[in-house]
């Protein structure tokens, strides 16, 4: 048979079908790109969050260390001030005790201990000692013992033992 028309090439997909497929594919690519973008942003946020968290933990650790350093400085300060106060109290207590010694009495040695005071000295008479030195010693110490030894010139050497008894 003879045909007057030339045969036309028949495309596999029609034009409108192609358009639809391209449109759908482009949309899917856009959707997936959007999802990938979101996932990347989420990953970056999570990464930064992790890094922030690590930094927070490190800073908190440093804060704890600083607090402990501060406490230790306060401890050192307290010790230092305590020692200086105790030194001053020691000086004042010794000064007060030495100021108690009346003029006629001469000391040859004095020994201060934690709960004890031993004094060696010379007094013109026992009465001077008993009137001028004994009362203040008795007011400070809980127990006072005095021993006298007469010297050739009539004066007395004395030994005074004074004790502080701690309250039970």
């Amino acid at each position: 048979m003879y045909s007057f028309t030339q045969p036309k090439k028949k495309p596999l997909l029609k034009e409108d079908t192609k358009l639809w497929l391209i449109f759908i594919c482009a949309s899917v690519i856009l959707y997936i790109s959007f999802v990938v973008f979101l996932e990347i942003k989420t990953f970056l946020y999570n990464k930064d969050t992790d890094s922030f968290n690590k930094e927070i933990v490190s800073l908190k650790q440093k804060i704890i260390e600083m607090d402990s350093q501060k406490q230790f400085i306060y401890k050192q300060k307290t010790l230092y001030e305590d020692i200086m106060v105790k030194n001053s109290l020691m000086k004042d207590s010794i000064k007060n005790l030495l100021d108690l010694i009346p003029d006629p009495i001469t000391l040859s040695s004095i020994s201060f201990d934690k709960n004890k005071l031993i004094i060696y000295g010379i007094t013109p008479t026992q009465d001077i000692y008993n009137m001028l030195m004994l009362p203040p010693l008795e007011s400070i110490f809980t127990e006072t013992k005095t021993y006298f030894y007469q010297m050739k010139n009539g004066w007395y050497k004395f030994k005074s033992e004074n004790y502080l008894k701690e309250k039970e």
């Binding site: 020692i83 030194n87 020691m90 040695s109 004095i110 020994s111 201060f112 201990d113 934690k114």
Partner: peptide, 9 residues
């Protein structure tokens, strides 16, 4: 710190 015993002779 200065502490006891303290002896003056």
């Amino acid at each position: 710190r200065v502490y006891f015993p303290i002896d003056f002779v």
